[in-house]
Write a protein that binds this DNA or RNA. Structure first.
Length: 281
DNA sequence: ATGTCGTGGACGCCACGA
């Protein structure tokens, strides 16, 4: 049994608010993110697509408002972080067995900055940025499926080793699990995010005992977490639900509420994703 | 492809990724 899960299990339980948000560049979005944290009063915020190296992350902006940050960024692409005001211990970058990617199929497939985790407020929080997939025929699509399968293998082992493990797999999953999670299934015919293998890869976490806890509090149809910048998708209410909080059984039992802050998608300088917030008892 | 963003490199735009 890992020390992480027993630590989490033994930690005192107190109510906690956890949010996940693909910020699409923390440097371009720092003011909005800092303002939002102040307004929303979250204990822990998992961020994706920070689009910077560790040396470029605006740690001091978060420190000023009382949040520690663990960030994992290797270049201008990807980048994941966790901000917490309830402690941040035992940071891990990447998960065991995580596949890598390189343009050259013959080259070593190096790990990308798509997963970071820390123990925060007694919960093992993972901030995840699942590969996009691009096209069904693209090498990135196979990479995405392999990445999700490896994450599922890791996640399943955690709850097999410790049935009481408090684990949150939150982030941009880049999968729309149900038809109602996109505005028009005909538009998505033959595209990524809605293909059966991607949906099966997402459902596999439920088969391992995990539960996506935000949907039940924010039922569709027409409820989304992402709207493309192009084609006036947001004003036309043409979005996708692709950001989720997938929780281990013991943590899922503690979920008391969830919401999607679509107000944050409005106005100049908005990310193309909205924050997805959950409360645990 | 793009009623759009963000990044970096060598600009005053282009390529790339989403």
């Amino acid at each position: 049994m890992s020390s992480h899960s027993s630590q989490a299990q033994d930690a005192p339980r107190s109510p906690l608010t956890l949010a996940t948000w693909n910020v699409n560049s923390i440097r371009a979005r720092a003011d909005r993110v800092i303002d939002w944290i102040g307004r929303s009063d979250v204990d822990v915020l998992a961020m994706q697509e920070t689009k910077c190296k560790d040396s470029q992350f605006p740690y001091e902006r978060f420190a000023e408002i009382g949040y520690e940050v663990a960030h994992f960024g290797l270049s201008q692409w990807n980048g994941v972080a966790i901000a917490s005001r309830v402690g941040l211990e035992d940071v891990q970058t990447g998960f065991p067995g995580m596949p890598g990617f390189a343009k050259d199929p013959e080259a070593e497939q190096a790990g990308e900055a798509r997963a970071i985790s820390a123990l925060a407020g007694g919960i093992r929080v993972w901030s995840l940025y699942v590969p996009n997939g691009r096209e069904l025929t693209d090498r990135h699509y196979g990479y995405k499926l392999d990445w999700l399968a490896a994450l599922r293998t890791y996640a399943e082992k955690q709850v097999t080793d410790d049935a009481g493990a408090q684990i949150a797999l939150v982030g941009d999953w880049n999968v729309a699990p149900l038809d109602e999670d996109v505005w028009d299934m005909e538009f998505f015919e033959g595209k990524t995010h809605v293909s059966q293998p991607e949906r099966d890869a997402f459902t596999a976490f439920a088969d391992a005992g995990y539960k996506e806890i935000t949907r039940g509090f924010t039922p569709g149809p027409g409820v989304y977490t992402y709207w493309d910048y192009t084609q006036l998708r947001f004003p036309k209410k043409q979005g996708m639900r692709i950001d989720f909080q997938v929780c281990s059984p013991a943590l899922a039992d503690r979920a008391t509420e969830a919401s999607i802050d679509r107000e944050e998608r409005k106005g100049k300088g908005a990310s193309d994703h909205a924050p997805v917030i959950a409360r645990f008892a």
